[in-house]
């Protein structure tokens, strides 16, 4: 077994590695939570099912990733303790995924921007020195590809649909675009994880992400906003005002009935 594989063996993750794993798990968890809010409220039955299906994929990814994070941490925390019993500051998802769904346009544009990032990230993590993580990434990559293709199709349909849908899609992109900068912001955890061969520093993915995203936005006849000096810090634990409300709902049962089995 190589030194790098040992580095992520149970109970031996460094704080940086744990933070990186939590970031992966929390992104899936929080976007899954948001997408599940669509269930029963989509514009058409097929989309009710598609959005629920993607939420289900993401919750599944979160379960695997948080279980893996808990084992790597070695303090006995399982998926539910990590998902439901941390304080807001300890969640490491990017701000983009915790934003309220908004209309269908905002939800699919977000799915597109984020799933494109996930496709690249899971692609790289499939060859992680952490074998457990590599297996989870390989499985999740297939799901992320489907999410991206679904969201890209809708982004194009809405952008190149009616005047109304174009305006709504453009408004969604204008709103969401600044939040994408956080995906690629440098972090010490990234540097440590990249050095250990466990996963890429997310900043490395920015150019490839633009290569994936920009042609679709062009086909959707949407104008890509200029970068502005807007910064968010969700992945460092400083979230938006929306996060507390999301957690209040999501954690309700575990907080109300501590220690119960479900």
């Amino acid at each position: 077994m190589s030194e790098q594989t040992l580095a992520a063996a149970p109970g031996t993750a460094t704080p940086e590695q744990l933070e990186y794993l939590l970031r992966l798990g929390d992104n899936a968890l929080i976007l899954g939570q948001r997408l599940s809010e669509w269930c029963g409220h989509a514009p058409v039955l097929e989309e009710d099912m598609a959005l629920a299906n993607m939420a289900l994929d993401l919750v599944g990814q979160a379960r695997l990733l948080l279980t893996h994070a808990g084992q790597s941490e070695g303090r006995g925390r399982d998926e539910d303790q990590l998902a439901f019993l941390r304080v807001e500051r300890d969640y490491r998802n990017v701000t983009l995924v915790e934003l309220p769904n908004g209309d269908f346009g905002r939800s699919v544009v977000r799915n597109f921007l984020f799933s494109a990032f996930q496709v690249l990230l899971y692609g790289r993590l499939s060859s992680s020195a952490d074998a457990g993580l590599a297996a989870i990434a390989a499985k999740s990559l297939k799901e992320a590809r489907y999410h991206m293709s679904h969201a890209a199709e809708w982004t194009i349909r809405l952008g190149d649909g009616t005047a109304v849908s174009h305006d709504k899609a453009q408004a969604a992109l204008d709103y969401l675009w600044p939040y994408t900068a956080e995906l690629f912001a440098a972090s010490p955890a990234d540097d440590a994880v990249a050095a250990a061969g466990i996963g890429p520093a997310w900043s490395e993915l920015e150019a490839e992400w633009e290569d994936l995203v920009l042609p679709v936005l062009a086909e959707a006849t949407l104008t890509v906003p200029a970068r502005v000096p807007f910064k968010t810090y969700g992945k460092f634990g400083r979230h938006s005002e929306h996060m507390g409300h999301l957690l209040a709902t999501m954690q309700y049962m575990q907080r109300t009935y501590p220690g119960a089995q479900w």
């Binding site: 939570q33 599940s36 379960r63 049962m253 575990q254 479900w262």
Partner: peptide
């Protein structure tokens, strides 16, 4: 959105 465990949510 309030399911008490990730398994039950799924």
């Amino acid at each position: 959105s309030r399911a008490p465990s990730l398994k039950r949510k799924a």
